[in-house]
Design a binder for these strands. Structure first.
Lengths: 226, 226
DNA sequence: CGACCGTATTAGACGCGCCGAATTCCTAAG
DNA sequence: CTTAGGAATTCGGCGCGTCTAATACGGTCG
């Protein structure tokens, strides 16, 4: 197929926005913002995708990926998350360093590299942020389960499942305070304006503004005794 | 400075051709052949280099790298050889797989990645083929010492220092027959038309055509007893 | 139902890296 | 000293990915 690195970025962006948004179709402006380019640039790329059978488009309405387009996106995401896992585990990368590196390398590694990395890590199913890694057959990963921390109720005890890796600063902030995948949290307070205060497993309480708490996905934990 | 991957490839090519050739200046046609592009393409790149202070040029005569241009070339070569070493040692890459992978990745790894890989390998000074890895300060590595296998005399015992990685097929051919860096060889026959027959350390004799034997660099070994 | 406003698309342009064709330059042979 | 042949450069053009400015569309509010 021979797609450029730039094309791969567009397909990945569309896939991710498709997942986030409520509706199916992804709008030109959303892609433009995400990739920091202007809308006309997006439009011309989209028509190229349509010609190549990577996306279905309804003019002035938005796009959806075809199966082919989705496969490419999943391949790129698999590369990205495997790289994040590998760099963190074997090359001492911190959470804030790992994202940019993976964003560049994901387009340039071979199938061989992918295989070897996956084998070395023993076929991991989630990356260090808790995001699911598509398997080698590129089947779409299961929808994330559980709730968003911002929607939890006071008194609940939950376990962190996934921390969004969109913003490296948020990531570092959370990681420094012990809010990492696998950690148990008790929800101590939910302020009316959205602020959430949680106490990680044997740590100090941490207060998070709503838009940060919205990037943390959690699952309820069985209570100690009923 | 922000150079493109393509520019880095040109600078690396010029550096390597500069080392090989007798004279100083590298000719347009040599670069064109090496990179598999046409001469006009090279010319336009060379004038860009001149503007940017990366190369000195005498029109119709050839080109030489400036100190700046050389530093970029050495950085890329350092990336390439560190990657070769790392991929071979930690990700099970074979000699024939490693070159292409490194050729792509060398342009896309960060300084952080470079550092971490170098640290993991404990600052290696040669790559798996025996080629010297420029140090982190990017000083030009010492000129290769020793002779080319094609020029050795019958009866000599030599140790393999470096095997050129230009042609993956040649590499695989040699590696399969035990002609690897560090191995001792006794030169058994030198045919008038250039063919050399050697016997690796406790292996079967191997005959090599001259142009292959020219890609193997060796150093004399002290004789057992005088 | 129509006008308006925000969003999307089309139109035209630019730099990069590449090409083929035409031209200019160097050099070595006579 | 001249000239022919090979090498390098200039010229014009192309696809990619980007932009700005101009235009077309469509949902919403009066």
């Amino acid at each position: 197929m021979m797609l450029s690195a730039v094309m791969e970025d567009y397909l990945k962006a569309i896939y991710q926005l498709q997942g986030e948004g409520d509706g199916e179709r992804v709008r030109t402006s959303a892609i433009a913002e995400h990739l920091e380019v202007t809308p006309p640039t997006v439009t011309s790329m989209l028509s190229k995708f349509e010609e190549r059978g990577l996306a279905d488009r309804e003019k002035y309405k938005g796009v959806t990926l075809t199966t082919d387009g989705e496969r490419v996106a999943l391949e790129v995401i698999r590369h990205h998350r495997l790289l994040e896992a590998y760099l963190t585990e074997h090359l001492d990368f911190t959470w804030s360093e790992v994202h940019d590196e993976a964003d560049r390398l994901e387009h340039h590694i071979s199938e061989t590299f992918e295989e070897r990395v996956a084998a070395t890590l023993e076929d991991p199913t989630v990356d260090p942020h808790g995001a699911p890694i598509p398997n080698a057959d590129l089947e779409p990963p299961a929808e994330p389960t559980g709730d968003v921390l911002a929607d939890c109720e006071v008194g609940a005890t939950v376990e962190v499942r996934e921390v969004s890796d969109r913003d490296p600063d948020v990531l570092e902030y959370l990681s420094e305070r012990g809010v990492n995948p696998g950690v148990s949290l008790s929800v101590e307070e939910v302020a009316p304006f959205g602020m959430v205060t949680v106490r990680p497993d044997g740590g100090e309480p941490v207060s998070l503004p709503e838009d940060v708490a919205r990037h943390v996905r959690v699952a309820p934990v069985a209570e100690a005794v009923s």
